[in-house]
Amino acid sequence: MRQSHTAVIERNTSWSGRIETEPYEAGWASEAMFFVRILEPRTGSAPVSLAVQISPDGIHWCNEGTVLPLDTAAALSWCRVSQFGTWLRLAGRLPRDMSLKVMVYIQLKA
C-alpha cells in the first residue's frame, strides 16, 4: 500500500505581507498537494499567487515553477507538485491592504 500523509503546516495563522511557510521534508513522497483554506474574517480581495519552492537543504530556496493561485474570495485554493526532491514550502506576498487567516495543508503520497 502506498504511504500517504497530511500535515497541517499553518493553523489559524494570520498572513499579511511576505509569506513563507515553514520548511517541510517530504523526500519519501513522489507527489504533493498544497491546500490553503481561508478562514474568516478576511481583509481585501485580489488575485494572489503563491510559489511552490524547493530546496536542497531546507535553507536555500528557489521556485519550483508551480504556482498556487490563491482565490481570496473562495474558501479553498490548491496546487499539486511532483518530482520535488526533499523540501517543500510556499512563498509569496499579499497586497498591502490584505490580511488573511489561513489553514495550510500539505498532502503527500509515496
Binding site: G27, D57, T86
Partner: peptide, 12 residues
C-alpha cells in the same frame, strides 16, 4: 505547536 515530519537528515 509544530507538527512532525519524516526526515532523512539532510545536511547542506
Amino acid at each position: 505547536l509544530r507538527p512532525p515530519m519524516l526526515s532523512n537528515s539532510p545536511a547542506w
